[in-house]
Amino acid sequence: MSDIKFSSEEKTLIVAKLQRYFSEELKQQIGRFDAEFLIDFISEEIGGYYYNRGVYDAQTVVAARLEDIGDQLFQLERRTDFKR
């Protein structure tokens, strides 16, 4: 798996959200450098957990769709004298 990387536009948005959270919820100011450092830390140390949860969720969706497709294919079968 490659590292979690954000574009500069994404990082700018995330930094702003983190700064706003610190200001509104924690009543503390956090500079851009510190916010970027925190984002990098979270991405490296915690990001994999969120990434894996997304992969698991995607696997569940794909498995359900494959089951639906299998059911639909079974419904397409024509009756024959052949016994399985």
Rank of each mutant, 00 (worst) to 15 (best):
A35F: 08
E36G: 12
L38W: 10
L66H: 08
Q75P: 06
Y21E: 08
I39E: 13
F6A: 02
N52P: 01
I4W: 08
K5W: 04
A16T: 09
L13W: 04
F82N: 04
R78M: 05
Q29L: 15
Y50A: 11
I4V: 10
R32Y: 11
I4L: 13
R65Q: 05
A64H: 13
L66C: 11
K17L: 10
E45V: 05
E25D: 13
A64C: 08
A63C: 03
I30N: 08
Q72Y: 00
E44S: 08
S23K: 15
N52R: 09
Q59L: 02
S8N: 05
Q75S: 10
E9F: 01
S8M: 06
V62M: 15
G54N: 08
V55M: 15
K11I: 06
S23Q: 15
T12L: 00
R65D: 05
Y50Q: 03
R79P: 03
D3G: 06
Q28K: 15
E77H: 00
S7M: 05
A35K: 11
E36R: 14
A35I: 10
D34G: 03
Q29A: 15
A63H: 04
I39T: 11
L76D: 01
I42S: 02
R32S: 12
Y51R: 13
S23M: 14
G70S: 06
V55Y: 12
F41G: 10
L73I: 08
D3F: 06
Y49H: 11
F6I: 00
G48M: 01
K83I: 12
S7G: 07
E77M: 03
Q29H: 15
Q59E: 08
I39N: 10
Q29G: 14
D34R: 04
G31V: 02
K5F: 03
Y49G: 13
D57F: 12
E24S: 15
E9H: 00
K17D: 05
Y21P: 02
D68F: 06
F41V: 14
D40I: 07
A58Y: 06
F6E: 00
D71F: 00
F74P: 02
R79E: 06
L76E: 07
K5S: 06
Q75V: 04
S8G: 01
F37Q: 14
F37A: 12
K5T: 06
D3N: 08
L18T: 01
K83C: 10
A16G: 08
G48I: 01
S23W: 14
S43L: 15
G47E: 01
A58D: 06
A16H: 08
L38N: 08
L26F: 09
Q28S: 13
E10L: 05
